[in-house]
Design a protein around this nucleic acid. Structure first.
Length: 476
RNA sequence: GGCCCCAUCGUCUAACGGUCAGGACACCACUCUUUCACAGUGGUAAUACGGGUUCGAUUCCCGUUGGGGUCACCA
């Protein structure tokens, strides 16, 4: 028997940006497709004409591309398929699986109120209308929707991540499948499309669990075979609530702006609700693909921890070849309006700071500090050191200025600087650290940098001297 | 509220009946480093609770509690 290659889809609606949950769902679909040699279809669910925009579609496509996710078919726009959705819905009507409902929104609201609120389901009154009455109302031009008659039986499936999940038809509504303007409702469109696209595995967020029995009923009524469903856990904010604007950044693009690199974002997202086992965390794309499986997906929701994301990003940054970092750093420097005299001058600066930076923003800022003293600001660590050393701080700076001034411009390199400073410290009976740390603070405002001699070399003599003098005067 | 899902350190997670409950982030201490970071070593920290089943439960079953999702002519 020939097993057909899996076909999966990622189906965002273009009513907003690509948020991290959506990115993660897309990533899981992509990993599954690549792992199994299957096909990933991108489908834009734009049937809500009110809220869907072309801009959002573009933003979502950009987000997917940024994450490095490619699709094999599409983007297919659901809006282009409404004829088929309508045909399928009307076939259900013709075969007696759906019925026409003439109730207006106001009537439905009144029914809901009369029934006492929350648990109201449509009572099926229009399903009991005699055929002649339906004909008469149609003839009069009364607007109507199509409702699906929900089978009153157990509806269950074997979920690839949760195991067996079951609902009962009595808890489900006779849902509308075709609006009065003859456009399809979400569940109808999705099932019609997934059948037409021969989707074999539906991998989507947990929030769709309650849609699944409704969709299964449609598959059955349409006589189509069911795909495998895999419901992946939600991503929550640090307060345990569904990730939303309240939590700050929720869009994939927000992390791009914060200087996260795609490989780190992708790796981190993969670990939200999935684990390859064996304590593996940092993985190449190829490793992720070969280790991926639906069975290893977590059932419980995951809290999005940006601190760990930034740590992971730092790991990626340290491991990236400097030439690859030039373009992103240039982009940030331009945004900061720093004059850096050409990309070819950047590598030594990037080399100096890359293992100490967690984001591209941080990296660019550190580079800017080395290029231009206007970006130097003393931070808490710097202030603390200054306070701790007291008068010794300025005294050290003066010794440093005197020592460094004596070095010829032509000898201004890491080795010579180191030798001179070391000799001066030893000769003056001071601890080398007490001489060096104030230099670091004067030059960068912080106690964190590459070795001080290298820092001095990279900043250059004239700027270094100016910074030291200024720091001695204003005593930081 | 009805229905559904879920429950291991603060967070991400490992364990698929027998482990001193492991790893990572964060935090603390130490080591390395002339100084910073990286790195390394060590430490604090978890099986929500109550019943079963079993020689033995993080693991299987039931209940409680807690959390989440969803209940439109939105998707």
């Amino acid at each position: 028997m020939i097993l057909a290659a899996p076909r999966v889809r990622f189906a965002p609606s273009p009513t907003g940006y690509l948020h991290v949950g959506g990115g993660r769902t897309a990533l899981f679909n992509w990993l599954f497709a690549r792992k199994t040699g299957g096909t990933l279809v991108l489908r834009i669910e734009d049937t809500d004409a009110e809220r869907s925009t072309e801009t959002h579609t573009q933003v979502i496509l950009d987000g997917l591309r940024w994450l490095g996710l490619s699709w094999d078919e599409g983007p297919i726009f659901q809006g282009a398929e409404v004829e088929r959705h309508r045909r399928d819905a009307e076939r259900l009507l013709a075969e007696g699986r759906a019925y026409r409902c003439f109730c207006t929104r106001e009537e439905l609201e009144a029914q809901r109120k009369a029934a006492g609120g929350d648990t109201y389901k449509y009572d099926g009154r229009c399903d009991r209308l005699p055929g002649a009455e339906v004909e008469a109302r149609m003839a009069r031009g009364m607007p109507s929707v199509l409702r699906f008659r929900m089978p009153q039986e157990d509806i269950a499936w074997e979920d690839a991540v949760h195991g067996r999940i079951s609902f009962h038809g009595r808890d489900l509504d006779d849902m509308v499948i075709l609006r009065s303007d003859r456009t399809p409702i979400y569940n109808m469109a999705v099932v019609s499309d997934d059948i037409a696209m021969r989707i074999t595995h539906v991998i989507r967020g947990d929030d769709h669990i309650s849609n699944t029995p409704k969709q299964i009923a449609l598959y059955q009524a349409l006589g189509a075979s069911m795909p495998v469903f895999a419901h992946v856990p939600m991503i929550l904010g640090t307060d345990g609530k569904k990730l939303s604007k309240r939590h700050g950044d929720t869009a994939v693009a927000d992390y791009q702006d914060r200087g996260i690199v795609p490989a780190a974002m992708r790796n981190f997202l993969a670990l939200m609700g999935w684990s390859p086992g064996e304590d593996r965390e940092i993985m190449t794309e190829a490793e992720m693909i070969s280790l991926f499986s639906l069975e290893a997906i977590q059932k419980k929701p995951a809290v999005f921890d940006t601190v760990k994301l930034e740590w992971m990003n730092g790991q990626y940054l340290s491991g990236m070849p400097t030439p690859e970092l030039v373009a992103p750093v240039v982009r940030e420097l331009e945004r900061m309006q720093v004059h850096f005299g050409g990309p070819h001058l950047l590598p030594p600066y990037i080399e100096a700071v890359k293992s100490r930076s967690r984001t591209l923003l941080e990296m660019a800022h550190r580079v800017a500090v080395r290029l231009d003293s206007r970006y130097v600001e003393i931070d808490d660590k710097g202030r603390k050191l200054r306070a701790k050393m007291g008068d010794g701080y300025v005294a050290s700076l003066k010794v440093a200025i005197e020592t460094l001034r004596a070095i010829e411009e032509g000898d201004w390199n890491g080795e010579t600087i180191f030798e001179k400073l070391k000799a001066r410290a030893e000769g003056g009976g001071m601890k080398l650290g007490d001489l060096l740390q104030p230099i670091r603070v004067a030059l960068t405002g912080s106690t964190v940098s590459e070795p001080v001699n290298e820092l001095l070399a990279v900043v250059g003599k004239s700027s270094a001297m100016a910074r030291l003098t200024r720091a001695a005067e204003r005593s930081w």
